[in-house]
């Protein structure tokens, strides 16, 4: 193992939080770390210095206007090769999970996705990754010389360690012709925060009784600037959109605080939220399985508890 390449992503102004997390994780292995980011301006990248990144390559492809999994994967693999990087780290988000397998195939590398732990032991990386929807975890290693990993967002902590960062901007010859699939439009969920990006997620289950009552959940989420989630039962009933479903056949989230209201706690749901840092459950059934996995539980009627809880939290947050 010689050198680590971390694939970074920007939002409009700086970098995505997941990028700071993988830079911070990469620093802990005692290997040189190079960042790579595609089609951004230098000012966006500078902040990575705060997280200990010392070297970063900006690859600009003048003919490539939008994200393209095929072209981006080519740029990443080429950069890894030309810089002698044999370990490539991605954030396990939408882009990372699409790019990492392509890059692994280009580099004849083994790839372990969605790692929640990564450490070096006896000269090799040992990864832990949730399987069976989080009901179990495997401990695995990669046998090939080149190795690719993606790290689950919100699990690795972004830690600051100011460094001096040298940025090299290169023009990539990979462009439009390599973009056999490309993004032609981007639709942001207007004013709505995604469960994958939120620090606080408030979800409801069948106990909410109907879509008209979701206002309670929205109000509580709003106090935190958080996102609204839903159990599978609620989505299957057509009360909430698929994009909000948390669980094994929905999204896997690890927010700082997860509030489950009127959710009994089927194994499929718990698989999607069990890595949350703090879990608060509200349910009128004291025997609901959710109370076995939560940090705090309120046994009561959510229609009475949630409005009071919302007011009290609002008072603290001022």
């Amino acid at each position: 193992m010689n050198k680590i390449l971390v694939y970074l992503e920007g939002n409009k102004v700086e970098l995505k939080r997941a990028s700071y997390e993988i830079v911070s994780a990469a620093r802990t292995f005692g290997l040189p770390v190079i960042g790579l980011i595609i089609n951004v301006v230098e000012s966006q990248v500078q902040i990575a210095a705060e997280y200990g990144l010392k070297e970063c390559i900006i690859a600009n492809s003048p003919t490539l206007n939008n994200y393209s999994s095929t072209a981006y994967a080519s740029i990443i693999a080429e950069t890894a090769k030309s810089n002698g990087c044999d370990v490539i780290l991605f954030a396990g988000n939408a882009a990372g999970l699409e790019l990492a397998p392509r890059v692994s195939a280009k580099l004849d590398a083994g790839y372990i996705s969605d790692c929640v732990k990564l450490e070096v032991a006896n000269g090799n990386f040992i990864a832990k990754k949730p399987v069976y929807g989080g009901k179990a975890q495997i401990i695995a290693k990669i046998n090939t010389e080149n190795k690719v990993f993606s790290l689950r967002p919100n699990v690795f902590t972004a830690t600051t360690e100011p460094a001096s960062l040298s940025i090299t901007t290169v023009t990539s010859s990979i462009g439009e012709a390599d973009a056999t699939s490309k993004v032609i439009n981007l639709a942001k969920n207007e004013g709505k925060l995604d469960v994958l990006e939120a620090d606080v997620v408030v979800s409801a289950g069948r106990g909410i009784k109907g879509p008209e009552n979701y206002i309670l959940i929205e109000n509580l989420a709003e106090v935190f600037g958080g996102a609204v989630g839903a159990s599978r039962a609620v989505v299957d009933a057509g009360w909430r959109p698929h994009g909000e479903q948390v669980g094994q056949t929905g999204k896997t989230v690890s927010p700082t605080l997860y509030i489950a209201a009127g959710i009994s706690g089927a194994v499929q749901h718990m698989a999607g939220m069990s890595t949350s840092k703090v879990i608060l459950a509200i349910n009128k059934d004291k025997d609901a399985p959710i109370f076995k996995v939560c940090d705090y539980g309120l046994v009561g009627d959510l229609f009475e508890v949630i409005p009071k809880l919302t007011e009290k939290i609002k008072a603290i947050k001022g």
Binding site: Y111, K135, Q137, I138
Partner: peptide, 16 residues
């Protein structure tokens, strides 16, 4: 390319 060395059930370490 990838070898699974072990599988485990994560511990539930919630205060509850």
């Amino acid at each position: 390319r990838v070898t699974v060395m072990g599988i485990e059930i994560p511990l539930k370490k919630r205060a509850g």
